[in-house]
Amino acid sequence: MSKITRRTFAASSAVVAASAAFGLRPALAQAYPARPVTLIVPWGAGGGTDATARIVAALLEKDLGQPFNVVNRTGGSGVVGHTAIATAQPDGYTIGMLTVEISMMHWQGLTELAPKSYTPLALMNEDPPGIQVSSSSPYKTVKELAEAIKAAPPGKFKASGTGQGGIWHLALVGWMQAMGLPANQVAWVPSNGAAPAMQDLAAGGLDLTTCSVPEARAIIEAGKARSLAIMAPARNPIFKDVPTLKEAMGIDYATGAWRGIGAPKNLPPEIATKLTAALKKVYDSAEFKDFMSNRGFGTVWGDAGQFGSFMDKGDAQMGEAMKAAGLSKA
């Protein structure tokens, strides 16, 4: 009995596949999405990227009328999930959330994948790094801190915020270079993310952290740390008191951790246009804005073209910082 069922199923699925390949091609674009769409997240459930992906998926589902299922493909420090997005069928039924790591990992020789391995759809978020010190630190402004760093021997100051070669490490390196200092002027203490680094800052083990201000928010509000500046072109409306590097010390350096939606390469343009338009609606919706400002996440919009050039620019910037820090294999 099971044999017959299996054969029937195989036959019928072949028919479906054939009709999809020949007969139904032109109708595909109008019909899209005709079935549930998978949104791959390269990071674990419960994190910031996961949360952003879930709100985007829920709003896309409302707009396009098909379920958008968030699937957390973790492992390999993001490589596994990013690979899954890049190697999926470019039919619009698998899209994914790209994160800043895609412009970093290939410089370290961890993967072949780079921003150009994807069809960019939309940039949704960017969080600039802040410069935080402990509340017992003698430095009240970023200028004082920078002067002290310049005067101290290399490696005297210790900073943290993420692992070796992570985005906040590169932000520190970029800042040092912008000040004309060597990459190792401040020693990097690797940590398992921003939260443990902020704890160690409060415990007195570090001089500064360069994680984003939202990540440091709880400790800052507890009065255990303060933020001196952010490495962004403009102030964050939620943390109005924190100046930008340019305002505080005239250094025009900005970077950030970003999240955007992408699809496998060679996605049919009509599907890409439709998705980008839907994502624009998501971005403009009150739900998305409320959610992001609640968490303190910065919102930045970039359509497919802008997202693409944004990634290319960031990619070059990361490559430079990684070479300076001796992290690049390329």
Binding site: G46, G48, A195, R217, A218, I219, A222, K224, G296
Partner: peptide, 29 residues
């Protein structure tokens, strides 16, 4: 530590913090 500083005590708390944030109950004093 999760509720006061947003620092997870273990993997379960790490997930819980994510949910707290998602629901606008941002950890902190």
């Amino acid at each position: 530590p999760s509720l006061l500083f947003g620092i997870p005590g273990d993997t379960i708390a790490a997930i819980a913090i994510g949910v707290l944030y998602m629901k606008g109950l941002n950890p902190g004093p």
